[in-house]
Design a protein around this nucleic acid. Structure first.
Length: 553
RNA sequence: GUGCCCGUAGCUCAAUGGAUAGAGCAUCAGCCUUCUAAGCUGAGGGUUACUGGUUCGAGUCCAGUCGGGCGCACCA
């Protein structure tokens, strides 16, 4: 719609002799009585012109000329807003585009010819996925979907580490449990992985090898088996939520020397040293973040000689630039909040365009059952497994609940609500609207032989519709493309969830107020096309959110 | 102590610096001989935690206070 209004407004400002450096913005007033669209340009321009905003708006209006039968009314209101009222004809005529474009409706081209890397989940294979990870996974996946709608060529990446101390402890944990299987008494340290899954891995080893590994103090086999089984479980869990990755990036590759015998990690040190941001003291190699005004320097190589996580993280991000992505999106939980500023600083020092990097941080998840809040705890490994949650409430509810709140808000996951099969549960409310339309269309086919083919000239019949419920629904359908770009700009799929909820509500109202199959034939068809267009937008939106679109419920 | 996030209706949450701060749930009152009542309509409910500031205009931006969450390792 912006492309419809913008040129006209610009021309009008020019003709009226109004100059302003403020960008023209078109907004949708919260209340319909203020029109379908509104601009505050007169308010913004008034200051520079030293004029009264209302008077200025009055002077601009005569120059606002639109094609016939598009804008019904233009008026000045409030402090100096210019409000536009569209004709029902123009709205319903525009709805035809939804039908004509089908699955493509809502797509844009701002990412055409560009590449995007979206990194999410990135859990190390030390245990099953937790609920907290799930939120980031769904957020990342939905964001990747959003980027794809705009023409970006998207790579979904998972960054992981199967080396280092955590994996060592994992291997040792499995070995100890294995020895227990063999009938030995062991001391299981509190620092080791307590989860039941460790026992299961150990039992599997025991059934494969019996007691032949008892004397095996080398952890390699234990580690390898654990990694394999755990990774498989992680991927199975992600798969249940339709979260898939194109690329798995192993942190360890950053440690291995290239053809010139230098590792990616080493290169970071060398380059930072050239910029005089490296120093060695206390037996460690430090990134001199105090030079950037921070309180402490940060360790890049520990006195043991191993890199700390920060170093490979910087090296990893450099590969993202070297792989030449136009857009780099990192999704992670609030517990990593302190990690990225150092990485960004290092990249900036090394001359990379950090503007390309976008960070999406999601706050934590708490689950409530019977009004009781359970704080997630990794230690116990029972109540907070993502798999258990999916078993409990299903994949659709899991996905939608994770993104129906802003990512900056702490998410309160109400398990009881997610299981409810009624309007209170937003998942069912949304899906019911879709199923209802499907049912309607099935019946229409049976009774009237209606065969929806979007390309027929028949969808011109839409132009007959003009009742408020119909026009409001039609208008909402036109909003869909803007919702995609808004969600993307804010990195907030939540906006899409809210939009779809509103859309479902408008449909239910239309359905309630306007008889469809019982209307006279032309009106009946028109209303069926409006329903069809609604179903199309619901489907397209569900696809972005990764929620299924049931044909019947 | 310090960095980041949050504080909005009884509850869960919205509100690109704009008009009378909105939804859903819960509560109350209505709507099925009619295409799915898994739905719809209406009502009540607010000093936007507090105090200042910035401006035509602040829930939104700035400073401070109070409250909650997450970090603050030579762990990732």
């Amino acid at each position: 719609m912006l492309e419809f209004f913008l040129p006209v407004i610009q021309r009008a400002l020019f003709s009226a002799g109004v100059t302003t450096d403020k960008p023209i913005r078109l907004e949708q007033p919260s209340d319909k009585k203020f029109g379908d669209f509104s601009t505050n340009i007169a308010l913004l321009a008034a200051k520079a012109c030293k004029r009264n905003p209302r008077e200025l708006a009055q002077e601009i209006i005569p120059y606002l000329t639109f094609p016939p039968d598009t804008v019904a009314k233009i008026e000045v209101a409030g402090a100096g807003f210019i409000n536009f009222y569209l004709t029902p004809l123009f709205i319903m005529q525009s709805v035809e585009q939804v039908l004509l474009q089908g699955d493509e409706y809502g797509k844009g081209n701002i990412g055409q010819g560009k590449t995007a890397l979206v990194e999410y989940v990135s859990a190390n294979p030390t245990g099953p996925l937790t609920i907290g990870r799930g939120r980031g996974g769904v957020l990342g996946d939905s964001l990747a979907n959003l980027f794809e709608t705009q023409g970006y060529e998207v790579t979904r990446e998972y960054y992981f580490n199967d080396a280092g101390r955590q994996m060592q402890i994992l291997g040792e944990s499995v070995r100890l449990r294995y020895l227990e299987c063999c009938g030995q008494k062991t001391e299981f340290p509190a620092t080791h992985y307590q989860g039941e899954y460790i026992r299961e891995i150990a039992e599997k080893l025991y059934s494969d090898y019996e007691t032949t590994l008892e004397k095996n103090t080398d952890l390699d086999l234990f580690k390898k088996s654990a990694e394999e089984i755990i990774f498989k479980s992680i991927r199975t869990t992600l798969d249940r939520l339709s979260i898939r990755h194109d690329s798995f990036f192993n942190e360890h590759t950053l440690y291995t020397p290239d053809s010139q015998g230098i590792s990616a990690n080493q290169r970071v040190i060398d380059e930072l040293r050239k910029k005089e941001f490296i120093s060695e003291y206390d037996g460690a190699v430090w990134f001199l973040t105090t030079r950037l005004g921070q309180e402490k320097d940060k360790v890049l190589i520990k006195s043991s000689g191993e890199p700390s996580y920060r170093l490979p993280d910087i090296a990893y991000h450099i590969t993202k630039f070297e792989r030449d992505y136009n857009m780099i999106v990192n999704v992670f939980g609030a517990d990593h909040i302190d990690e990225y500023p150092d990485v960004l600083e290092a990249l900036k020092i090394l001359g990379y365009e950090t503007d390309r990097i976008k960070i999406a941080i999601n706050q934590f998840v708490t689950t409530t059952v019977d009004g009781q809040t359970l704080k997630m705890s990794t230690r116990k490994g029972n109540a907070d497994l993502l798999d258990d949650l999916i078993d409990d409430v299903g994949a659709d509810a899991t996905r939608l609940f994770f993104i129906m709140r802003g990512k900056d808000s702490h998410l309160n996951f109400d398990i009881e609500l997610a299981k409810k099969q009624s309007k209170e549960n937003p998942v069912f409310y949304l899906q019911y609207a879709h199923a209802r339309i499907c049912s309607l269309l099935r019946m229409a086919q049976q009774e009237t032989g209606f065969n929806p083919s979007a390309r027929t000239a028949e969808c011109r019949l839409l132009r007959q519709l003009s009742s408020p419920a119909e026009v409001q629904l039609g208008f909402a359908l036109l909003d869909y493309p803007a919702m995609i770009t808004t969600s993307l700009r804010l990195l907030e799929p939540q906006k899409m969830v809210e939009y779809l909820h509103d859309l479902a509500e408008l449909f239910h109202r239309f359905y309630q107020e306007c008889p469809i199959l019982k209307a006279e034939p032309d009106i009946c068809k028109a209303r069926l096309y409006l329903s069809l267009a609604t179903r199309q937008v619901l489907r397209n939106g569900f696809r972005i959110l990764g929620v299924s679109a049931p044909e019947s419920m």
